[in-house]
């Protein structure tokens, strides 16, 4: 049914697409470090070439009950439920910053467990619902 010309075009196309996908895959793989927007506390802990004092981003959940704020600074713990990092920040946090919500902190590590942030971003999750419908979340989790 297909003519010879059409068949040769299809095979040319398939071969070039396969080559293209493989090359993009390798490029992305080598760029992996740069593509990550933030490191989780676990990644930060086990990353060997992590320079203390270099600007990085740490992301995870704000640990429940870990927020301490006074007039000068706000302190809280970022956790990924395996490891955690204590963060200190002076400045205003976004409205959505809260306990047990996602957060990304930009700044420098002082040591493996203490992070000084210049900027706090709130990371929103994918759930959308009206107030007072928490059980929607629980149903959804199942």
């Amino acid at each position: 049914m297909l003519t010879k010309k059409v068949k040769s075009r299809i095979s040319f196309l398939v071969i070039s697409i396969v080559l293209l996908i493989t090359s993009v895959f390798f490029i992305l793989n080598s760029l992996k470090e740069n593509v990550l927007y933030f490191l989780t506390p676990t990644e930060a802990k086990f990353k060997e070439d992590l320079e203390i004092g270099k600007n990085i981003r740490i992301g995870g959940m704000v640990k429940k009950g870990s927020i301490y704020a006074d007039s000068k600074e706000i302190k809280f713990t970022i956790t990924d439920f395996k490891n955690e990092i204590l963060v200190s920040f002076s400045g205003t946090v976004p409205n959505l910053f809260a306990e047990e919500k996602g957060v990304v902190a930009e700044g420098k590590l002082k040591d493996k467990n203490f992070f000084v942030a210049d900027r706090i971003l709130a990371k929103h999750d994918e759930n959308y619902m009206p107030p007072g419908e928490k059980n929607f979340l629980d149903n959804n989790a199942k």
Partner: peptide, 11 residues
């Protein structure tokens, strides 16, 4: 208003 930034160079 949500993240606290207009733009982020994430993937």
């Amino acid at each position: 208003p949500t993240w606290g930034t207009w733009w982020a160079w994430d993937a």
